[in-house]
Design a protein around this nucleic acid. Sequence first.
DNA 1: ACACGCTACCGTACGATGTACGTTATACAT
DNA 2: ATGTATAACGTACATCGTACGGTAGCGTGT
Lengths: 250, 250
Amino acid sequence: MALTRPVYAPDMSSEHSTATAAPPRPARRSRAPRGSLSSDLILDHALRLLDEKGLDAFSMRALAEDLGVGTMALYTYFRGKDELFRAARDRVLAAYTPPSTEGSWDQQLRAACVAVHELFTGRPAVLRLLAESTANEDFLDTATAAMDRMLALLREGGLGREDAARAYGTLSRFTIGSALREVRACAHPEALDAFRARIAALPQDRFPHLADLAPELLLSTESGSDEYAYGLDLILCGIRTLATTPTTPA
Amino acid sequence: MALTRPVYAPDMSSEHSTATAAPPRPARRSRAPRGSLSSDLILDHALRLLDEKGLDAFSMRALAEDLGVGTMALYTYFRGKDELFRAARDRVLAAYTPPSTEGSWDQQLRAACVAVHELFTGRPAVLRLLAESTANEDFLDTATAAMDRMLALLREGGLGREDAARAYGTLSRFTIGSALREVRACAHPEALDAFRARIAALPQDRFPHLADLAPELLLSTESGSDEYAYGLDLILCGIRTLATTPTTPA
DNA sequence: ACACGCTACCGTACGATGTACGTTATACAT
DNA sequence: ATGTATAACGTACATCGTACGGTAGCGTGT
């Protein structure tokens, strides 16, 4: 059974009249030397690819080619795409640096939220990983510490146990919702243009308020982080009310 | 050139020793009668599939099989998967029924937001379409009318033009962020369990506040809509402050 | 009744993708 | 030089969306 080619090699004996004279022969790369790869190097390139080309354009093959390496070499370091994505996400989350501990509790809380928001919007593709991944509750110490810090600030502000937990949830939902919207707006500028065009050309009779507020709505599509800060302040305003009046609002 | 088979038919003349004695022969369906399909019918099945199996399990082939129809039949009614998804999204959005126009402006605003939130969480897969689709600013009249209505209520509450526009943005970001989180939690209960386990087993010395608030945090994973309502009230509280004090909050 | 044409339905093929599986070359120890 | 562990790899396969062209079922005109 000594075969010069693997058994599954396609035998080219039956050459047809089709135009494909030769199978494209994928330009046989020469094998990369032994130490060419490492999980860190792979993650570096993966994050660069994600940031540059976006999540949709990412593929294991593209990443391997970017690294000048065969596709399957990646599987020595990561069990699969999911694991690689999780590692990439963790690398980004680990880069979170908590803001200064100066100022009042609400100033600090605001700064912490803004920092998270910037972290997310700075890494659009990773944000999508966070939002879409099938399971990412296995967070890092960095993320856990950030959460602990925010809860501490809410308690410091005088919120009760339950209020603190729920206010944290509110901040986190708003932050990720905001970041997602901005990332989408930034990733698809043509869609944003379409939206702007639509807003500007609305029939005043059917949508009077929308048409009336068109300039302001257009303005609000300009800077995502401004809009985020505005909403954050609205929420913080509500939280401050909670801090004064210990009963639930409304 | 009268061929009984298409020119590209693989000739089975070179039978190898491999175990694949016969090509699996995909059980040749009989052709469906002429009027079997319509875009409405396709959308019905698509939405059912999406709701039942989730966005990840959805494929054109699966949808066609569910309809008892060849895959390519779908392309008579929709240019492709994207167009089908947009149509599905529109169908769901069109089902939005604005809540009653009774009560004060803020009560009405609250009701409108809750209705949107329920619409989203009731259709998890469609929400993901909304969040991930490459371009969905081509909204329906239903959606536009809802937006107009909310802006009207904000203005009625006494907000200035710019404040109304921005407050709308805040509400919408929070609503979609919330819905997304709940949908993910509901789609991956095992991940939620992992999260709960992690929260319950945190080292008190490193994350004192988190550990302290563990019961409340666990509680807050129970009902997503409760958490949404809580955050919504926080934001509305901030908005009401705006309505009284016409300057931006801080 | 019969033919004809339109088009809804369909089969096949293609180029992607993630990855299971087995192979091979390289670096190091001996 | 020879062995050995394993990093890097090539191939194959299932699955996906869909381009392309074929074909059969219907409506219509005679």
